[in-house]
């Protein structure tokens, strides 16, 4: 979706301000928000991409004004409500008013949590078709404006680039965010800055995105 999360090329946000000796967390509530998000996610009721979609679906004014972990927390509350693990009354009162809903996976134990972090959840899958593009292929990122989740940033849409790496077939976030498992090929596609930003672009700059095959169509060879 064309939400506030899609920030590449936006202007007016001012300088980047790195913090000296930055702590990992700035407040205990940030720690608990991260941990609750991972632990609740492990119940298997939503994919990581549904989680991302919940965050980017926040109102743009709110998204840009809220801190990172506030965005996470608001999205977690929304997912818990949407998946009927909690209802709005429970969220407001902070008290359980009905029995728990059965979840795909049982709650994460401390040992499960260690395993989850150590092993992760790989996203590479067996391809169901041969790759359409190869290293060196000229491609154009499609012009799409889906209402749902996508990881094709607006600044790359309609732009021509070159396939630089082929990463195998991966979970397709656009489908995964709708609860569907449809692995597709994943590529690194590089664009000269001039193609993305036009005249005045840094002539020494190349920008790449990670592009899923459905985002791409063939382009004419470079003249």
């Amino acid at each position: 979706m064309n939400g506030a999360q899609d920030l590449g090329g936006a202007m007016g946000f001012g300088p980047v301000r790195p913090e000296k000796e930055e702590p990992v967390f700035h407040a205990p509530w940030e720690e608990r928000t991260l941990a609750l998000t991972l632990a609740a996610g492990a119940l298997g009721e939503w994919s990581i991409d549904e989680g991302r979609y919940a965050r980017e679906s926040l109102h743009p004014a709110l998204y840009l004004n809220a801190s990172y972990y506030e965005i996470w927390l608001r999205a977690l509350e929304r997912l818990l409500r949407e998946k009927a693990l909690l209802d709005a009354k429970e969220l407001e009162s902070g008290r359980a008013l009905s029995p728990a809903t059965k979840t795909r996976r049982t709650k994460l134990s401390a040992d499960d949590a260690r395993r989850l972090m150590a092993n992760g959840t790989p996203y590479r899958r067996e391809p169901s078709a041969p790759a359409r593009f190869a290293v060196g292929s000229r491609v154009r990122a499609k012009v799409i404006n889906p209402q749902g989740h996508t990881r094709l940033p607006r600044y790359a849409r309609g732009k021509e680039g070159t396939v630089e790496r082929v990463h195998g077939a991966h979970v397709f976030p656009d489908a995964s965010a709708r609860g569907k498992n449809e692995p597709v090929w994943l590529y690194t596609v590089a664009f000269p800055a001039r193609e993305l930003w036009g005249e005045g672009a840094d002539p020494t700059l190349t920008v790449s995105i990670e592009a899923f095959e459905p985002y791409l169509e063939p382009a004419a060879p470079k003249s």
Partner: peptide, 17 residues
Amino acid sequence: LLVEKGYVDPAALDVIV
């Protein structure tokens, strides 16, 4: 609330943090 309903174990949260 999530602990009360049995969805999360505080020990797992501590490990993650």
